[in-house]
Design a protein around this nucleic acid. Sequence first.
DNA 1: TTGTAGGCGTTATCAC
DNA 2: GTGATAACGCCTACAA
Lengths: 348, 348
Amino acid sequence: MNSTNEPPKSPQKATIADVAKAAGVSKTTISRYLSGDYKSISASTLKRIEEAIAELRYRPNRMARGLRQARSYSIGMIFADISNPYSTSVLRGAEDVCTRHGYSIIVCNTDNDPVKEKNYIHMMQAHRIDGLIIHPTGHNKDILNEMADERIPVVLIDREIPGLAFDTVGTDNYRAMSEATRFFLDQGYERIGFFSQPIEHVSSRAERFLAFTDVLRNAGHPSVNDLYEFEIRKNAQLEEQLERFIEATSGQSRMLFAVNGITQLKLINALQTRGLRIPEDIGIAGFDDSDWAPVIGSGITTVAQPTYEIGQRAMEKVLQRLGGDDSAKERIALPGQLIIRGSTPSQK
Amino acid sequence: MNSTNEPPKSPQKATIADVAKAAGVSKTTISRYLSGDYKSISASTLKRIEEAIAELRYRPNRMARGLRQARSYSIGMIFADISNPYSTSVLRGAEDVCTRHGYSIIVCNTDNDPVKEKNYIHMMQAHRIDGLIIHPTGHNKDILNEMADERIPVVLIDREIPGLAFDTVGTDNYRAMSEATRFFLDQGYERIGFFSQPIEHVSSRAERFLAFTDVLRNAGHPSVNDLYEFEIRKNAQLEEQLERFIEATSGQSRMLFAVNGITQLKLINALQTRGLRIPEDIGIAGFDDSDWAPVIGSGITTVAQPTYEIGQRAMEKVLQRLGGDDSAKERIALPGQLIIRGSTPSQK
DNA sequence: TTGTAGGCGTTATCAC
DNA sequence: GTGATAACGCCTACAA
């Protein structure tokens, strides 16, 4: 019995030396076992090693291994908005790929704040992450370039940063938006309002709007200038813009296009508040499919992004670069899918 | 000029030795600086150190530091389903707290699969995480206990595991569900169907159902046995259960209660398919508020969970334990909030 | 088939 | 105020 009042000693994590001693071999042999070099170990030794590891519940220390090998087996993922379902789906895709290869993921959420983003990149550097997948705010070109200089694979998702040579994975926004816009024209809408958070230099938004105007201009459609921008956090701005569109299009058959999922929701909310019915009074559609899109009203027409696959492809690209591939940077644009539902009926 | 054809050497990450040399001091002094021990460094030295660090873009290697200090400054978070908005909100809350304290988060998603969960816990152990926040499947008691034995703070969210002494953070399910049920009774529903994924030993589901039946039994209400369980991935099961409820309650005023957000969506979908109108033909409500709950029909009545705060509190608890707090394990049950919308009108 | 020795980048312990 | 030195746990030549 323990006469002192000390708490029971917490069992210290076993080290490779403990395992070596228990198995009656040297650390080298254990290390060989850990790196899968079974063929240079005798059967009986193998057995003793396995028993020792199980007995001691040995888990190789990744920090020690990482320090020695100068690689952490961790991939950083920095999201502009982790609460967006887009992000979690990408995360799942990426995780499923990298887990199979023994990598772990360190995640961060910047809330679209360039300062947070900068700090997180620094944190990632301190972790000596082997690769980075980032949904960038677009304001930290310098550090991103710095990482690239250090030969750390960086893959951008959703957004590209002009002038930066990184691998990029996202939806083929131009193509998907063109298809969608042509569909809206076929449905016979006289006016289509493009509602977006400030396009500025966010490439995905810009591509969508460009496709929109290109198709409209080609068709000689009057909505070429129907762009309505607002800050997502400022409901007043959105309502003001909506008001502007509604007034300008009074008496015409019309619809709203939302640049992303969150904008869809905000617009639907605003329409309901104003007592406008979907689709009788006004049509609506938007980028990003979701669980709720099918069940709102008679369903919302959306452009689905292949989010899970975007995550997979981004991680595969990181691993490919890690594997030594030094070919030209690639821009991977995956097809989006127009999902037609009840919110955009024919106006003819 | 470089006569060989080698690519330009990628600038190697600076080490503490490089900084020491650049600043003309010893590694020890740099280390002192890094640990914030400024008062034992002269002003001029301090200045040279700061210049050297900036110049070399030095980032302390967390693996080396972690190895030496036997702590990783990483917290593991294991989610049963990361695509559930519940999870991301918890994640954000946890992240905001731990970032302020210099910790990073390693995330995993188990898809409610105990095998994946086990592998991920092993991975976390290899990372030597300083603490673990887990939304447990409930099937890996042994390893979780093992971690606790090693003095690693483990905090459970949403679900408790019977017989395990861990800190726990979640919603006060019993209280919130009681309030909601009383409200439904007040509205005058003759039958209320409780739709849930298998309750089994998932404590949060069990608490909700218990509160439900307790209130009903107290009121002598006939729905005490109106439990309808189904596997979330099997739509046929859900529809079968829904059919059963619809038939059994024909002619009565009735509503469905969904045990969580995903179930809400599935039920709404199934009702629409059957041509049943909400709330004219049948009412609906459920646990978990969401962005879409206000905009479906005249709004869905929900019980909102304080998800962000759950994440915060869980992380705070981890840090508190890390700080040496050895008091009794705590069960933190945060208040939920009943949000009444149009899907559960009075039946009187 | 197995073992020895040195070092990865830090911090802690002493010493000056 | 500052520095030399020995670990931390692992891997990788190089030997045997």
